[in-house]
């Protein structure tokens, strides 16, 4: 039995690894062809962009150097081969290795995303606990706020926050600075819409938990409202939100593209935007691959967190008997 369990776990791990490799391959493939579909000549981009006057000889030399004169399929296979050995290649525009470049930008974006996720969780928890078990009006206000928050686009939120906090009141810097104050507006911009999503699922499961028989049992033991919330209901409410956090992290990184650009904050998002603008294919692929890797890691982490919060064994789909 124990042997069987170990084998089942190892099998699970193997499946997960194979899945991760598949995702990385798919990401690399889609990105490679998507970038190639942007009109224009990559060789021109290498030589300084479409505006610069370049001789046909120079273009031909660059094409030969970067292998751009080979058939697309061959280039693709070549790219895959390099990725498989961990080589992200050389940036066309910045004349440096993509690996160190991407890694140097990763930290800023990770800090931004993790802080935003934390703040979003806090807002969602506060809103959900405040608005449940307090009557219809509170519930409607809570759910209304969540819907509005979830619908706010990042670019609008960022500009509005800048106008209010930097231009009118002048309390926070409009562009990212080295100190913590510069992080406030970008984090809030990313956290508010996410808090709307998380709050919606949390409040729904919190309401269900508070109406469940085990909460009635706890009350019948003399448990206080706070005890009911902390010892029982919140844990149940957190489960779906934890499951959602892996996805949320991915959406935060895509939000970072907008937010880092607006707040002039260094990071993966801005690097990606710049690279797409100048058709710096290796950097685009490098950023996307790193983001995919982080996303896979986050998914594993949220799975582990779910397992910790809900240690019940997962049941297989085949039910027997009644």
């Amino acid at each position: 039995m124990a042997d069987q369990l170990t084998r089942a776990r190892l099998g699970g791990l193997g499946r997960r690894l194979a899945g991760a490799v598949f995702v990385l391959w798919a990401v690399a493939t889609v990105t490679f062809f998507a970038v190639r579909m942007i009109p224009g000549d990559p060789a021109e981009a290498i030589l300084g962009g479409p505006g610069s006057q370049t001789s046909p000889e120079a273009l031909a030399a660059v094409r030969a150097e970067y292998g751009l004169d080979q058939p697309l399929l061959l280039q693709y296979l070549h790219q895959l081969g390099r990725l498989a050995t961990g080589d992200l290649g050389q940036s066309y525009a910045l004349n440096m290795d993509v690996g160190p470049l991407v890694v140097s930008q990763l930290g800023g974006t990770l800090v931004l995303a993790l802080l935003s996720l934390t703040v979003a969780w806090l807002i969602a928890l506060l809103l959900a606990t405040w608005s449940t078990g307090r009557g219809r009006l509170a519930r409607q206000i809570g759910s209304g706020l969540e819907i509005v928050a979830a619908a706010l686009p990042h670019f609008w939120l960022a500009t509005t926050l800048i106008v209010v906090f930097s231009i009118w009141w002048g309390v926070l810097p409009p562009i990212s600075t080295a100190d913590a104050r510069g992080l406030v507006l970008p984090v809030v911009t990313l956290a508010i819409p996410l808090a709307g999503f998380l709050g919606q699922v949390m409040r729904e499961s919190l309401t269900a938990a508070l109406e469940s028989p085990f909460v009635l049992s706890a009350r019948a033991r003399g448990e206080s409202e706070r005890g009911v919330l902390w010892r029982h209901a919140l844990r149940h409410a957190a489960l779906p939100a934890i499951g959602l956090s892996g996805w949320a992290f991915g959406s935060l990184i895509s939000g970072a593209v907008v937010v880092e650009t607006i707040f002039a904050r260094p990071g993966l998002g801005r690097t990606l935007l710049n690279a797409v603008t100048v058709r710096d294919v290796p950097v685009v692929i490098g950023v996307v691959m790193i983001v995919a890797l982080v996303y896979i890691l986050m998914t594993v982490l949220t799975d582990l967190a779910s397992r910790l919060a809900d240690p019940r064994p997962t049941t297989s789909g085949t039910g027997a008997g009644a």
Binding site: S212, P213, F214, L216, S217, A218, R219, A220, R221, G222, E223, S224, R231, H232, R235, H236, A309, D310, P311, R312
Partner: peptide, 24 residues
């Protein structure tokens, strides 16, 4: 009431699966 519940009176509900917190 809370001081009395559990001490002076106990409650047993139907469906123990749902009446005991499934996570604890």
């Amino acid at each position: 009431w809370r001081r009395r519940r559990g001490r002076d009176v106990g409650l047993v509900l139907q469906d123990a699966l749902a009446s005991l917190d499934p996570l604890r």
